[in-house]
């Protein structure tokens, strides 16, 4: 169990806080008591071997998975105490980008982007459309607004998915292996967008195997194994001199590729 604190904003309350969070699937403990705290503006990369609980961790943060024990606070609100509508508000504040994009195939790109703002944030259609076009611009595909997801390349789809999250104007963006389903030539265009996002100061939690991205963007690397956080460190230390033996072994394996 490790907790992350940066010196920059330690006096203000953390934006995300997990305390001894446990998540079980049947008898299996996918998270075995995880504690982490992330301040506003922090960029955390979560890595670790397959099955170590990375997805489970970030899915608990917007309650796609309900945790079984421990506490999670987002912006000071305890998730386990929220009503359904309270949870919807939190989810509007916590954007999620999925490995498989999960765009809505029956809606155009623009409609994908305006759905949340119109139905959750109750913006007018005009306001939502303007917001959507703004964010499409930010992910560099304004010209695709009226196409359907299947008409786009994987990289473009993932950028639409990022824009869809941004249209909710979230405080936190979660990414679960956003480039793992992409062909190599498309990974860069998505990572570029994420790097640009990072520079806007939004709080990001990114599960990824892209260690170059982690090195460039993260201020903290969290290394997980067996449902626990084994180590959390700044990138320089983690990449040059990981504190844990398992971290070292993982890096050796992943950097060989």
């Amino acid at each position: 169990m490790t907790s992350i604190k940066t010196a920059t904003a330690s006096e203000s309350a953390p934006l995300i806080e997990m305390r001894d969070v446990v998540k079980r699937y049947g008898d299996f403990e996918a998270l075995g008591g995880v504690s982490i705290s992330v301040n506003s503006g922090q960029r955390v990369v979560v890595c670790g071997p397959s099955g170590s609980g990375k997805s489970t961790l970030i899915r608990c943060l917007n309650q796609l998975e309900k945790h079984d024990a421990g506490e999670i606070f987002i912006d000071g609100q305890r998730l386990s105490q929220l009503s359904a509508s309270g949870l919807r508000k939190i989810r509007a504040d916590v954007g999620m980008v999925f490995q498989q994009f999960n765009l809505f195939p029956h809606l155009t790109v623009l409609e994908n982007l305006t759905l949340g703002p119109m139905r959750t944030r109750k913006l007018s259609e005009d306001a939502a459309r303007k917001l959507a076009l703004d964010h499409l611009e930010k992910v560099h595909i304004p010209e695709q607004a009226n196409k359907y997801p299947r008409q786009l390349s994987g990289g473009q789809q993932q950028r639409v998915a990022i824009a869809r999250s941004l249209c909710m104007e979230p405080k936190i963006l979660l990414f679960d292996e956003p480039t793992s389903a992409l062909d190599p030539e498309m990974i860069v265009e998505v990572l570029d967008v994420m790097v640009e996002l990072a520079s806007t100061g939004i709080t990001m939690l990114v599960v990824t195997h892209e260690m170059g991205f982690a090195n460039q963007v993260a201020d903290t690397i969290v290394f997980m194994d067996g449902g626990k956080i084994v180590e959390s460190n700044d990138p320089e230390t983690f990449f040059s001199n990981p504190a844990s033996e398992r971290g070292r072994a993982f890096l050796k394996k992943i950097l060989r590729h």
């Binding site: 509508s85 508000k89 139905r119 959750t120 869809r164 909710m168």
Partner: peptide, 15 residues
Amino acid sequence: GQLEAADSIGLGYFG
């Protein structure tokens, strides 16, 4: 994944 995406943009049950 469609349900999760819908959840993550804050849609409720009926939305």
